[in-house]
């Protein structure tokens, strides 16, 4: 399934948060949104999962305008993993994953099978009966990813899914997502993670798309200086050999002090 944002403008309380944004997520690719805090990444994602309605433009799934779908129909197509997951109200991991079946009408046995498979796929079968609130941050995000899998959407929307996770859990989660080969639009904070896992990147800056393309083309030091206000250095990762960004403040770096 293909996601297309076509000239999307979202206005909240008469202030435009994003204006005229065009984004295309080709089927099966992992497309990242990066940008400073408040640039409009989450707003764009919320327009895709219908928490916000575009004031102009449209979001299309395989050509169909979201507005022509019922809430339930779009929930069958699009699954979401958002950044703050709450404490899960004492649901068990299994029960949280089972909520992914809400938009579907299947036989209970079929639901149970799909939920069990989703837990298996993220490696959480052993913790299925555990209360969600007793799981670690990384385990929680994996459970929420399993819920998205149980929802069987052909589009995945991730809003900073690696926030608050330790580095091991961050890598685990993104490996899992990449291996799913589902059409995915993800807002990510860490530029190096975005570069390592995304097929394409869009840089959001002040509510507009400032650059789009493969990570290596987009993440150029001069451009990052302009958007993020930092000095960036593009080197190669000592372990993987992939290109790797290092950052320093724009001014007063401390180097001249000694």
């Amino acid at each position: 399934m293909r996601i297309v944002l076509d000239g999307v403008t979202v206005t909240v309380d008469e202030t435009p948060i994003v204006s005229g944004v065009d984004i295309e997520v080709p089927p099966g690719l992992l497309v990242g949104l990066v940008g400073p805090n408040g640039s409009g990444k989450s707003t764009l994602l919320r327009a895709v999962y219908r928490a916000l309605r575009p004031t102009a433009g449209a979001v299309r799934l395989d050509g169909a305008d979201l507005r022509t779908l019922s809430v339930r129909e779009s929930a069958r197509r699009t699954a979401v993993v958002a950044q703050h997951s709450g404490d899960g109200f004492d649901f068990t991991a299994l029960e949280i994953v089972a909520t992914g079946r809400t938009p579907h009408r299947a036989a209970p046995a079929e639901d149970r099978r799909i939920v069990a498979e989703a837990l298996e796929r993220v490696g959480m079968t052993a913790q299925a009966g555990r209360l969600f609130s007793t799981l670690s941050g990384g385990e929680r995000q994996r459970v929420l990813l399993a819920r998205a899998l149980a929802q069987q959407g052909r589009v995945l929307v991730l809003d900073e899914p690696t926030n608050h996770l330790d580095i091991g859990a961050q890598l685990d989660l993104l490996e899992l997502v990449r291996d799913l080969r589902v059409t995915t639009l993800a807002a990510l904070h860490d530029l190096n993670l975005a570069a390592a896992y995304c097929d394409l990147l869009h840089v959001v800056h002040q509510g507009r798309i400032a650059a789009s393309g493969p990570p290596a083309d987009v993440l150029q030091p001069d451009f990052l200086a302009e958007v993020f206000g930092v000095r960036a250095h593009l080197g190669s990762h000592p372990l993987t050999g992939r290109s790797h960004l290092s950052f320093a403040p724009l001014k007063n770096t401390g180097e001249t002090l000694t």
């Binding site: 919320r46 999962y49 219908r50 928490a51 809430v71 339930r72 129909e73 779009s74 929930a75 069958r76 699009t78 699954a79 979401v80 958002a82 909520t99 992914g100 809400t102 938009p103 929802q151």
Partner: peptide, 8 residues
Amino acid sequence: ETALTLGV
């Protein structure tokens, strides 16, 4: 918001 994304 979660309920909405689950089709409610």
